[in-house]
Protein backbone atom coordinates (compact mmCIF):
# COMPACT_ATOMS: atom_id res chain seq x y z
CA UNK A 1 0.00 0.00 0.00
CA UNK A 2 1.16 3.44 -0.88
CA UNK A 3 1.37 5.65 2.11
CA UNK A 4 -0.68 8.75 2.01
CA UNK A 5 1.50 11.64 1.12
CA UNK A 6 2.27 13.86 4.01
CA UNK A 7 2.58 17.39 2.89
CA UNK A 8 5.85 17.50 4.73
CA UNK A 9 5.44 20.18 7.31
CA UNK A 10 5.95 19.82 11.02
CA UNK A 11 2.70 21.55 11.75
CA UNK A 12 0.93 18.48 10.49
CA UNK A 13 2.25 16.38 13.35
CA UNK A 14 1.41 19.06 15.79
CA UNK A 15 -2.04 19.25 14.42
CA UNK A 16 -2.47 15.52 14.84
CA UNK A 17 -1.46 15.72 18.48
CA UNK A 18 -4.00 18.40 19.12
CA UNK A 19 -6.68 16.40 17.41
CA UNK A 20 -5.90 13.36 19.50
CA UNK A 21 -6.21 15.45 22.63
CA UNK A 22 -9.50 16.93 21.54
CA UNK A 23 -10.83 13.49 20.79
CA UNK A 24 -9.85 12.08 24.14
CA UNK A 25 -11.46 14.96 25.92
CA UNK A 26 -14.62 14.60 23.94
CA UNK A 27 -15.03 10.89 24.56
CA UNK A 28 -14.25 11.22 28.27
CA UNK A 29 -16.96 13.74 28.72
CA UNK A 30 -19.83 12.03 26.92
CA UNK A 31 -19.45 8.27 26.97
CA UNK A 32 -23.19 7.74 27.63
CA UNK A 33 -24.19 9.55 24.49
CA UNK A 34 -21.90 7.33 22.51
CA UNK A 35 -23.27 4.20 24.13
CA UNK A 36 -26.87 5.06 23.39
CA UNK A 37 -26.02 5.83 19.81
CA UNK A 38 -24.14 2.60 19.39
CA UNK A 39 -27.00 0.59 20.88
CA UNK A 40 -29.52 2.15 18.53
CA UNK A 41 -27.18 1.51 15.65
CA UNK A 42 -26.83 -2.15 16.54
CA UNK A 43 -30.56 -2.64 16.98
CA UNK A 44 -31.16 -1.23 13.51
CA UNK A 45 -28.30 -3.23 12.04
CA UNK A 46 -29.63 -6.45 13.51
CA UNK A 47 -33.21 -5.80 12.41
CA UNK A 48 -32.11 -5.12 8.85
CA UNK A 49 -29.82 -8.14 8.96
CA UNK A 50 -32.76 -10.34 9.97
CA UNK A 51 -34.85 -9.02 7.10
CA UNK A 52 -31.96 -9.82 4.78
CA UNK A 53 -31.65 -13.32 6.19
CA UNK A 54 -35.30 -14.36 6.35
CA UNK A 55 -35.67 -15.13 2.65
CA UNK A 56 -32.52 -17.22 2.90
CA UNK A 57 -33.89 -19.05 5.80
CA UNK A 58 -36.99 -19.79 3.79
CA UNK A 59 -34.91 -20.99 0.87
CA UNK A 60 -33.01 -23.46 3.02
CA UNK A 61 -36.14 -24.53 4.82
CA UNK A 62 -37.91 -25.22 1.52
CA UNK A 63 -34.91 -27.23 0.44
CA UNK A 64 -35.59 -29.54 3.37
CA UNK A 65 -39.29 -30.06 2.67
CA UNK A 66 -41.16 -32.62 0.68
CA UNK A 67 -43.09 -31.55 -2.38
CA UNK A 68 -46.25 -31.57 -0.34
CA UNK A 69 -45.49 -29.36 2.60
CA UNK A 70 -43.88 -26.62 0.52
CA UNK A 71 -47.02 -24.52 0.49
CA UNK A 72 -48.67 -25.86 3.59
CA UNK A 73 -50.67 -23.37 5.59
CA UNK A 74 -49.60 -22.11 8.05
CA UNK A 75 -46.09 -22.20 6.59
CA UNK A 76 -43.67 -24.57 8.23
CA UNK A 77 -40.55 -22.71 9.26
CA UNK A 78 -38.69 -25.76 10.36
CA UNK A 79 -39.74 -28.70 8.22
CA UNK A 80 -40.46 -31.93 10.02
CA UNK A 81 -39.02 -34.30 9.10
CA UNK A 82 -36.17 -32.48 7.40
CA UNK A 83 -35.44 -34.06 4.04
CA UNK A 84 -31.67 -33.82 4.03
CA UNK A 85 -31.69 -36.32 1.20
CA UNK A 86 -32.93 -33.55 -1.11
CA UNK A 87 -29.37 -32.27 -1.30
CA UNK A 88 -28.17 -35.67 -2.47
CA UNK A 89 -31.04 -36.06 -4.90
CA UNK A 90 -29.89 -32.90 -6.65
CA UNK A 91 -26.72 -34.72 -7.63
CA UNK A 92 -28.65 -37.80 -8.75
CA UNK A 93 -31.14 -35.93 -10.87
CA UNK A 94 -28.74 -33.96 -13.03
CA UNK A 95 -24.93 -34.12 -13.49
CA UNK A 96 -24.64 -31.37 -10.93
CA UNK A 97 -20.95 -31.86 -10.09
CA UNK A 98 -20.07 -31.62 -13.74
CA UNK A 99 -22.24 -28.54 -14.05
CA UNK A 100 -20.57 -26.87 -11.06
CA UNK A 101 -17.18 -27.69 -12.52
CA UNK A 102 -18.19 -26.14 -15.87
CA UNK A 103 -19.43 -23.01 -14.18
CA UNK A 104 -16.29 -22.58 -12.09
CA UNK A 105 -14.11 -22.76 -15.19
CA UNK A 106 -16.36 -20.47 -17.16
CA UNK A 107 -16.63 -17.93 -14.37
CA UNK A 108 -12.89 -18.01 -13.65
CA UNK A 109 -11.97 -17.40 -17.29
CA UNK A 110 -14.44 -14.57 -17.76
CA UNK A 111 -13.56 -12.98 -14.43
CA UNK A 112 -9.85 -13.06 -15.20
CA UNK A 113 -10.24 -11.26 -18.52
CA UNK A 114 -12.85 -8.84 -17.32
CA UNK A 115 -10.92 -7.75 -14.26
CA UNK A 116 -7.46 -7.40 -15.80
CA UNK A 117 -8.63 -5.73 -18.98
CA UNK A 118 -11.16 -3.50 -17.28
CA UNK A 119 -8.44 -2.13 -15.01
CA UNK A 120 -6.23 -1.37 -18.00
CA UNK A 121 -8.96 0.27 -20.06
CA UNK A 122 -10.27 2.24 -17.08
CA UNK A 123 -6.76 3.53 -16.44
CA UNK A 124 -6.66 4.83 -20.00
CA UNK A 125 -9.95 6.67 -19.53
CA UNK A 126 -9.19 8.04 -16.08
CA UNK A 127 -5.63 9.27 -16.46
CA UNK A 128 -5.17 10.53 -19.97
CA UNK A 129 -6.50 13.46 -21.84
CA UNK A 130 -7.06 12.70 -25.51
CA UNK A 131 -9.16 13.69 -28.44
CA UNK A 132 -12.54 11.94 -28.79
CA UNK A 133 -12.41 10.85 -25.19
CA UNK A 134 -15.94 11.97 -24.34
CA UNK A 135 -17.60 10.34 -27.37
CA UNK A 136 -15.61 7.18 -26.83
CA UNK A 137 -16.62 7.01 -23.19
CA UNK A 138 -20.20 7.73 -24.13
CA UNK A 139 -20.07 4.89 -26.62
CA UNK A 140 -18.92 2.60 -23.83
CA UNK A 141 -21.93 3.67 -21.78
CA UNK A 142 -24.29 3.20 -24.71
CA UNK A 143 -23.22 -0.43 -25.03
CA UNK A 144 -24.36 -0.88 -21.42
CA UNK A 145 -27.74 0.62 -22.24
CA UNK A 146 -28.56 -1.60 -25.22
CA UNK A 147 -31.18 -4.13 -24.14
CA UNK A 148 -29.45 -7.50 -24.08
CA UNK A 149 -32.70 -9.24 -25.02
CA UNK A 150 -32.70 -7.65 -28.45
CA UNK A 151 -29.12 -8.57 -29.32
CA UNK A 152 -29.58 -12.27 -28.49
CA UNK A 153 -30.59 -13.17 -32.02
CA UNK A 154 -28.07 -10.98 -33.92
CA UNK A 155 -25.27 -12.21 -31.66
CA UNK A 156 -26.29 -15.80 -32.21
CA UNK A 157 -26.37 -15.28 -35.96
CA UNK A 158 -22.90 -13.70 -35.72
CA UNK A 159 -21.45 -16.74 -33.94
CA UNK A 160 -23.20 -19.18 -36.23
CA UNK A 161 -21.85 -17.41 -39.33
CA UNK A 162 -18.39 -17.02 -37.81
CA UNK A 163 -18.41 -20.75 -37.21
CA UNK A 164 -19.35 -21.45 -40.82
CA UNK A 165 -16.63 -19.08 -41.96
CA UNK A 166 -13.96 -20.95 -40.00
CA UNK A 167 -15.51 -24.25 -41.05
CA UNK A 168 -16.33 -25.24 -37.51
CA UNK A 169 -19.09 -24.52 -35.04
CA UNK A 170 -18.98 -22.23 -32.05
CA UNK A 171 -22.47 -23.21 -31.03
CA UNK A 172 -22.53 -25.59 -28.09
CA UNK A 173 -19.09 -24.34 -26.98
CA UNK A 174 -18.07 -21.82 -24.36
CA UNK A 175 -16.34 -19.61 -26.92
CA UNK A 176 -19.26 -17.22 -27.55
CA UNK A 177 -19.62 -16.90 -23.79
CA UNK A 178 -15.98 -16.28 -22.91
CA UNK A 179 -14.36 -14.61 -25.88
CA UNK A 180 -16.32 -11.33 -25.83
CA UNK A 181 -14.94 -10.77 -22.31
CA UNK A 182 -11.30 -10.53 -23.41
CA UNK A 183 -11.45 -6.78 -23.89
CA UNK A 184 -12.91 -6.12 -20.45
CA UNK A 185 -16.47 -5.40 -19.48
CA UNK A 186 -18.11 -2.02 -19.90
CA UNK A 187 -19.73 -1.75 -16.46
CA UNK A 188 -16.49 -2.67 -14.69
CA UNK A 189 -14.54 -0.26 -16.86
CA UNK A 190 -17.00 2.46 -15.90
CA UNK A 191 -16.61 1.68 -12.22
CA UNK A 192 -12.82 1.47 -12.27
CA UNK A 193 -12.62 4.71 -14.26
CA UNK A 194 -14.69 6.48 -11.65
CA UNK A 195 -12.62 4.95 -8.88
CA UNK A 196 -9.32 5.95 -10.45
CA UNK A 197 -10.68 9.47 -10.77
CA UNK A 198 -10.76 9.75 -7.00
CA UNK A 199 -7.03 9.15 -6.77
CA UNK A 200 -5.16 12.48 -6.69
CA UNK A 201 -2.38 13.09 -9.15
CA UNK A 202 0.14 13.64 -6.35
CA UNK A 203 0.59 9.91 -6.00
CA UNK A 204 1.98 9.53 -9.46
CA UNK A 205 4.25 12.55 -9.59
CA UNK A 206 6.94 10.96 -7.49
CA UNK A 207 6.89 7.88 -9.68
CA UNK A 208 7.13 9.99 -12.81
CA UNK A 209 10.08 11.83 -11.37
CA UNK A 210 11.80 8.46 -11.02
CA UNK A 211 11.25 7.78 -14.68
CA UNK A 212 8.45 5.27 -14.44
CA UNK A 213 6.16 5.12 -17.46
CA UNK A 214 2.38 4.93 -17.39
CA UNK A 215 2.30 1.14 -17.66
CA UNK A 216 4.55 0.76 -14.62
CA UNK A 217 2.58 3.37 -12.73
CA UNK A 218 -0.63 1.51 -13.37
CA UNK A 219 0.67 -1.71 -11.88
CA UNK A 220 3.03 -0.29 -9.25
CA UNK A 221 0.98 2.63 -8.00
CA UNK A 222 -2.62 2.47 -9.06
CA UNK A 223 -3.26 -1.24 -8.86
CA UNK A 224 -1.98 -1.75 -5.33
CA UNK A 225 -3.91 1.29 -4.18
CA UNK A 226 -7.11 -0.05 -5.67
CA UNK A 227 -7.20 -3.59 -4.32
CA UNK A 228 -10.64 -3.14 -2.71
CA UNK A 229 -12.07 -1.71 -5.92
CA UNK A 230 -10.50 -4.48 -7.98
CA UNK A 231 -11.98 -7.04 -5.60
CA UNK A 232 -15.35 -5.35 -5.99
CA UNK A 233 -15.33 -5.91 -9.73
CA UNK A 234 -13.90 -9.37 -9.22
CA UNK A 235 -16.83 -10.34 -7.02
CA UNK A 236 -19.30 -8.67 -9.32
CA UNK A 237 -17.78 -10.25 -12.41
CA UNK A 238 -17.65 -13.72 -10.90
CA UNK A 239 -21.17 -13.42 -9.64
CA UNK A 240 -22.45 -12.10 -12.93
CA UNK A 241 -20.98 -15.08 -14.74
CA UNK A 242 -22.01 -17.57 -12.09
CA UNK A 243 -25.58 -16.34 -12.32
CA UNK A 244 -25.65 -15.84 -16.09
CA UNK A 245 -28.66 -17.56 -17.57
CA UNK A 246 -29.82 -16.54 -21.01
CA UNK A 247 -26.40 -16.70 -22.69
CA UNK A 248 -25.51 -20.21 -21.50
CA UNK A 249 -29.07 -21.35 -22.16
CA UNK A 250 -28.94 -20.20 -25.77
CA UNK A 251 -25.43 -21.36 -26.66
CA UNK A 252 -25.08 -24.63 -24.75
CA UNK A 253 -27.02 -27.63 -26.02
CA UNK A 254 -25.76 -30.60 -24.02
CA UNK A 255 -26.74 -31.14 -20.42
CA UNK A 256 -23.08 -32.02 -19.69
CA UNK A 257 -22.09 -28.54 -20.81
CA UNK A 258 -24.72 -26.62 -18.87
CA UNK A 259 -23.86 -23.96 -16.33
CA UNK A 260 -25.39 -23.81 -12.93
CA UNK A 261 -28.33 -21.51 -13.67
CA UNK A 262 -29.39 -23.56 -16.67
CA UNK A 263 -29.06 -26.70 -14.57
CA UNK A 264 -31.27 -25.16 -11.90
CA UNK A 265 -33.90 -24.46 -14.52
CA UNK A 266 -34.18 -28.19 -15.12
CA UNK A 267 -35.95 -28.58 -11.79
CA UNK A 268 -38.57 -26.27 -13.09
CA UNK A 269 -40.31 -27.82 -16.03
CA UNK A 270 -42.83 -25.91 -18.07
CA UNK A 271 -45.66 -27.30 -15.98
CA UNK A 272 -44.22 -28.86 -12.88
CA UNK A 273 -41.81 -27.25 -10.46
CA UNK A 274 -39.89 -29.40 -8.03
CA UNK A 275 -39.60 -26.75 -5.33
CA UNK A 276 -37.54 -28.64 -2.75
CA UNK A 277 -34.94 -29.79 -5.26
CA UNK A 278 -34.85 -26.37 -6.90
CA UNK A 279 -34.21 -24.70 -3.57
CA UNK A 280 -31.68 -27.32 -2.52
CA UNK A 281 -29.78 -26.81 -5.75
CA UNK A 282 -30.02 -23.03 -5.38
CA UNK A 283 -28.69 -23.26 -1.85
CA UNK A 284 -25.72 -25.28 -3.05
CA UNK A 285 -25.17 -22.82 -5.87
CA UNK A 286 -24.86 -19.76 -3.63
CA UNK A 287 -22.42 -21.31 -1.17
CA UNK A 288 -19.32 -20.68 -3.32
CA UNK A 289 -20.22 -17.04 -3.63
CA UNK A 290 -20.80 -16.58 0.06
CA UNK A 291 -17.39 -18.11 0.70
CA UNK A 292 -15.83 -15.89 -1.97
CA UNK A 293 -17.37 -12.80 -0.48
CA UNK A 294 -16.56 -13.67 3.09
CA UNK A 295 -12.93 -14.34 2.26
CA UNK A 296 -12.63 -11.02 0.45
CA UNK A 297 -14.58 -8.88 2.82
CA UNK A 298 -11.65 -8.15 5.14
CA UNK A 299 -10.32 -5.90 2.39
CA UNK A 300 -13.36 -3.68 2.58
CA UNK A 301 -12.13 -1.77 5.58
CA UNK A 302 -10.80 1.78 5.86
CA UNK A 303 -7.33 1.93 4.36
CA UNK A 304 -4.34 2.92 6.46
CA UNK A 305 -4.55 6.48 5.29
CA UNK A 306 -8.01 6.98 6.67
CA UNK A 307 -10.10 5.76 9.52
CA UNK A 308 -13.54 5.88 8.10
CA UNK A 309 -16.50 7.90 9.20
CA UNK A 310 -16.96 7.95 12.91
Amino acid sequence: MMEYKNYGSLTMDQEREIIEKIKKEKYKRIPLHKKVRSTIKHVILILVAISMLLPFFWMVSTALKTNNNVFSIPPQWIPRPAQWSNFLRVFDSIPFLRIIFNTVGYAAAVTFFEVVMSVIVAYGFARFRFKWKKPLFLFLLITIMIPGEITIVPTYIFWAKLGEFFDTSFINTYIPLILPAIGGQAVHIFFMTQYFRTIPKDFTEAAYMNGANSWTILWKVFFPMSIPAVLTITISSFMGTWNAFLGPLIYLNDVEKFTIQVGLAMFQGMFNVNWPLLMAATTISVIPMIILFFSFQKYFIPSNKSSGVK
Binding site: M117, S118, I120, V121, Y123, G124, F125, R127, F128, R129, F130, K131, K133, L136, L140, T143, I146, T151, P154, T155, I157, F158, L179, P180, I182, G183, G184, A186, I189, S214, L218
Partner: peptide, 23 residues
Amino acid sequence: PSPGYLFIAPWFISYFIFGLFPM
Protein backbone atom coordinates in the same frame (compact mmCIF):
# COMPACT_ATOMS: atom_id res chain seq x y z
CA PRO B 1 -0.76 10.16 -29.92
CA SER B 2 -1.67 9.90 -26.26
CA PRO B 3 -0.90 6.51 -24.68
CA GLY B 4 -4.49 6.65 -23.50
CA TYR B 5 -5.52 5.20 -26.86
CA LEU B 6 -3.37 2.15 -26.28
CA PHE B 7 -4.91 1.52 -22.89
CA ILE B 8 -8.47 1.77 -24.09
CA ALA B 9 -7.82 -0.11 -27.32
CA PRO B 10 -8.45 -3.67 -26.05
CA TRP B 11 -12.06 -3.03 -25.14
CA PHE B 12 -12.83 -1.18 -28.35
CA ILE B 13 -11.15 -3.82 -30.51
CA SER B 14 -13.02 -6.65 -28.84
CA TYR B 15 -16.29 -4.74 -29.01
CA PHE B 16 -15.83 -3.96 -32.67
CA ILE B 17 -15.18 -7.64 -33.36
CA PHE B 18 -17.90 -9.18 -31.21
CA GLY B 19 -20.41 -6.49 -30.40
CA LEU B 20 -20.71 -4.15 -33.33
CA PHE B 21 -22.32 -6.54 -35.79
CA PRO B 22 -25.19 -7.46 -33.44
CA MET B 23 -25.68 -3.80 -32.59
